[in-house]
Amino acid sequence: MGYAVLHMEKTSGTDTAMSAHIERTIKPKNADESRTHLNRELIRFPDGVESRTQAIQYRLDTAGLTRKIGNNQVRAIRVLLTGTHDDMERITNEGRLDEWCSDNLKYLADTFGRENIVSAVLHMDEQTPHIHATLVPIIRGERKRKKKEEQVKKRYRKKPTGTTRLCADEIMTRAKLKSYQDT
């Protein structure tokens, strides 16, 4: 038995180059065009939403955020899920690929919230099957910096606790990244 791969990468949300790769609007060199029809959209966009960038914006608009989103703020996290080539080949040959996809989608939903997963696509046209997922880092709860601000003598404007906010840093802390790899 090999290993599972979970790769996470922050993005600004206008993810045109990666969206073109995922949606196959461009032809990557490492993809077999005769197998592209085997690719599957595992999570569909909401009605009226046609692209990954629009899906990210739709989630931001419907999340109930109260603070303005900064220009440099991370709006989405790209996630790549796969395993060793031998393991993925075995899973495919045993007819368990649908089960593998369901398990991965359940993991993403349990870990990050089902409503935050705006896209998931299974690629079968490359050498090793894999899932490209896009999640919007919407969280609830107390801010990590709140304690630091209380220790400083300067008085800052009190920010409400427990509100819905966009925060990739909370999802991608060193400790959480390690725990994702273990789970």
Results as ranks from 00 to 15, higher is better:
Tyr3Pro: 01
Ile139Asp: 10
Arg143Tyr: 05
Met18Lys: 13
Met18His: 13
Gly70Val: 05
Tyr3Thr: 12
Thr62Arg: 15
Glu33Ser: 15
Leu42Cys: 11
Glu94Gly: 02
Thr134Val: 15
Thr14Gln: 10
Ala76Asn: 06
Met1Lys: 03
Gln127Ile: 10
Arg78Thr: 11
Val79Ile: 15
Gly83Trp: 04
Gly64Phe: 06
Ile117Asn: 03
Arg24Phe: 05
Lys176Met: 08
Ser12Leu: 13
His123Thr: 06
Thr11Cys: 12
Val79Asp: 04
Arg59Cys: 13
Met172Ser: 13
Thr84Asp: 09
Ile43Asn: 05
Cys101Val: 12
Leu108Phe: 08
Asp169Asn: 14
Asp47Lys: 15
Glu94Met: 11
Val5Thr: 09
Cys101Met: 11
Glu149Tyr: 14
Cys101Thr: 13
Asp169Phe: 02
Leu80Pro: 02
Lys153Gln: 10
Leu135Phe: 04
Ser102Gly: 01
His123Cys: 03
Pro46Glu: 12
Tyr58Trp: 15
Ala55Arg: 00
Asp98Pro: 06
Leu6Gly: 00
Tyr3Val: 08
Pro46Asp: 13
Arg52Leu: 15
Cys101Glu: 10
Gln57Thr: 11
Arg78Pro: 00
Val5Tyr: 02
Arg44Ile: 14
Asn71Tyr: 06
Ala17Cys: 10
His85Cys: 05
Thr62Trp: 05
Pro28Met: 09
Lys153Asp: 02
Thr92Gly: 04
Thr84Ala: 01
Thr161Ser: 14
Leu177Gln: 15
Ala168Ile: 00
Ala4Leu: 12
Gly64Val: 11
Glu126Met: 01
Val49Leu: 07
Asp61Val: 03
Asn72Tyr: 10
Arg155Phe: 09
Gly141Glu: 13
Leu97Tyr: 07
Arg52Trp: 11
Asn104Leu: 04
Asp32Ile: 03
Tyr107Asn: 03
Asp182Ser: 11
Lys158Arg: 14
His123Lys: 09
Ala109Glu: 06
Thr16Tyr: 11
Thr164His: 06
Gln181His: 12
Asp110Gln: 07
Thr164Asp: 02
Asp15Trp: 12
Asp32Tyr: 08
Ile138Glu: 00
Thr183Lys: 14
